[in-house]
Design a binder for these strands. Sequence first.
DNA 1: CACCTAAACGGACTTTACCCCGTTTCATCG
DNA 2: CGATGAAACGGGGTAAAGTCCGTTTAGGTG
Lengths: 203, 203
Amino acid sequence: MYRPVILGTQPAERADATRNRLHLLATAREMLAEQGADRLTMDGLAERAGLGKGTVFRRFGTRAGIFQALLDDDEHNFQRQVLSGPPPLGPGATPLERLIAYGRARACFLIEHRDVARAALDGSQPIPIGGRTPMSQIHIRMLLGQVGLDGFDLDMLTVQLVAALDGPVLLYLSSDEFTDAVGELEQGMGRAWQKLVERVCRP
Amino acid sequence: MYRPVILGTQPAERADATRNRLHLLATAREMLAEQGADRLTMDGLAERAGLGKGTVFRRFGTRAGIFQALLDDDEHNFQRQVLSGPPPLGPGATPLERLIAYGRARACFLIEHRDVARAALDGSQPIPIGGRTPMSQIHIRMLLGQVGLDGFDLDMLTVQLVAALDGPVLLYLSSDEFTDAVGELEQGMGRAWQKLVERVCRP
DNA sequence: CACCTAAACGGACTTTACCCCGTTTCATCG
DNA sequence: CGATGAAACGGGGTAAAGTCCGTTTAGGTG
């Protein structure tokens, strides 16, 4: 029997699966808006969506998986801006300018979506820095390559910079105090990121 | 009724509490060595230690708290080295040299104690970077102050550097592959840290 | 030494993430 | 179409973290 196997293509999601996935995400957003992230339980979500618990877990694997899916969803816009939007975030500016712009934009993005971002962290799978968001990793790595630094282990430097970018944000996410003065915080982080990157990339 | 209130001094731990705390830590280390961190449950620990579950939770608050306590314990030696050991880790070298030495030493420390360090992370209380280990925070902040950098927000830079230091280690902790080649990894991280700090601090 | 209070103790109870597996539904192929 | 295998579904079951509150005990006071 002939079966056309296309490498790297997994079997394609079934129609009912897609429908349920989208419905669950929508329901999750509703509950998130109404009750906040920590009041969202898997049982509750399943019941409200009119589906079985097992279904929820098959779709998202884990509780954090739901929030990761929501975050991925939000991230699509952001990715478009980065990959094909106007400079300095998109192509057209110098690598250093894009690096600076990227850090600022990502900090803003995470702060805006802090509720979801925070809930997307998972203790039992502790890769908070760059493992779950390969986008930052890949993009920063590419830009660093274009900068043309000598004598650096660029992969390691990438991990360091991603961490330096996410670290302050995570620290912020973890304290429930700063609910005001968000704009100011974004500015501070942006400035700090710019300074750091300029120093590192200085010839 | 007169009560001598000494500010900043909490009521002092009761003798039985101390005894139980130490006994629990010792038992936890045994179980850790025998079964690994993820097979260590609160019920199991309580039973093996011959104590009630409530006691375990009063002492450590949370599961991660146990591992944090174990890590704190391990950290005492390290702290002594940093605060009063020989240069370049201890006092006597230039701030930049100490900064470099500190990063190397901390990376080695975390890698050595990776089992406990990993289990000490807590998803529901996500402050993985510098919040739970104010030691790095404080020490690096102090050294940066001594370096004499102009135009930096030193507090923010501290958070960035702590993250850049911990990030690669956390990333490493999360992948169960590299169980070999530990020495090599420590070297790579050490070199990368040195390069980063030298660049940032360069006049 | 008897008393008293605040802290510590124990373990049943609750909550919730996650697993399992018998049942149902989709999509493909003859 | 109808058959068929694979995938999805449902929801009861399990394990483990964390809470509660009635009971016990350490250690200071008169």
